[in-house]
């Protein structure tokens, strides 16, 4: 019987103690932040976003060498890089931010933020700190495709143009190489022409035979 009453009183008193706690908290200042009205950088426990905060990635294109280290370091494959070599005949001869000559155009530098896991491995891997975390975290959107951000400074036509220039250069080089080769061959032929004069008649007969065989 005493136990019974004790239990009742204990239960009642613990409830009152709990109510006291909530009553005290009723008059405490709130700890939440009215998010869009008050910027969330003002947060309980930290007055500003830390320097190494890992939010949306940003690529500083003038710093990027196109080494693809970040692409390899990414654990979720959200970075896609495609580079085009800078053609020597290209009139546009840009320098990197540190004054070095640019070797690659970044014809494609896409980051899919729908896949990005904000691990920061790409920023560590980058040798020139071209890919960094910004403090921007408010980039939600209605379409998933908008999360695929293109960092490349070129649009499609420009990329095509750069590719064309490179192809031209390659072609020119190839032509030049061919011309050089032909010239060398010619020179060699001219040198050898006296040596091979005797043999040439035999060669011609065998060539004729070949043609006949083919036509048969």
């Amino acid at each position: 019987m005493i136990n019974y009453l004790k239990n009742i009183i204990k239960g009642f008193s613990t409830i009152l103690v709990g109510m006291k706690v909530t009553f005290i908290n009723l008059f405490r200042p709130n700890v939440t932040v009215q998010y869009p009205n008050v910027h969330p950088l003002v947060r309980a426990g930290s007055d500003k976003m830390p320097d190494n905060a890992r939010n949306k990635l940003n690529v500083i294109i003038p710093k990027c060498t196109g080494c693809k280290s970040c692409e390899k370091a990414c654990p979720v494959n959200c970075i896609t890089i495609e580079t085009t070599k800078v053609a020597s005949i290209d009139t546009e001869k840009p320098l990197m931010e540190d004054g070095k000559k640019r070797v690659f155009w970044l014809s494609q530098f896409d980051i899919d933020f729908a896949k990005c896991c904000f691990c920061g491995l790409c920023t560590i891997a980058c040798p020139t700190s071209a890919i960094v975390h910004s403090t921007d975290f408010e980039y939600s959107c209605y379409d998933r495709n908008e999360l695929l951000v293109h960092f490349s400074p070129f649009n499609k036509e420009q990329v095509a143009e750069k590719k064309r220039i490179l192809a031209e250069e390659v072609k020119q080089k190839a032509e030049k190489a061919l011309a050089d080769k032909q010239a060398a061959e010619k020179a060699a032929q001219e040198q050898n022409i006296t040596d091979s004069k005797i043999k040439s008649s035999d060669d011609q007969t065998s060539a004729n035979q070949n043609i006949q065989n083919n036509s048969n």
Partner: peptide, 12 residues
């Protein structure tokens, strides 16, 4: 929130 704030300052 305090704990997460400290860890955020450490790790980002």
């Amino acid at each position: 929130e305090f704990a997460l704030g400290i860890l955020e300052k450490l790790s980002g």
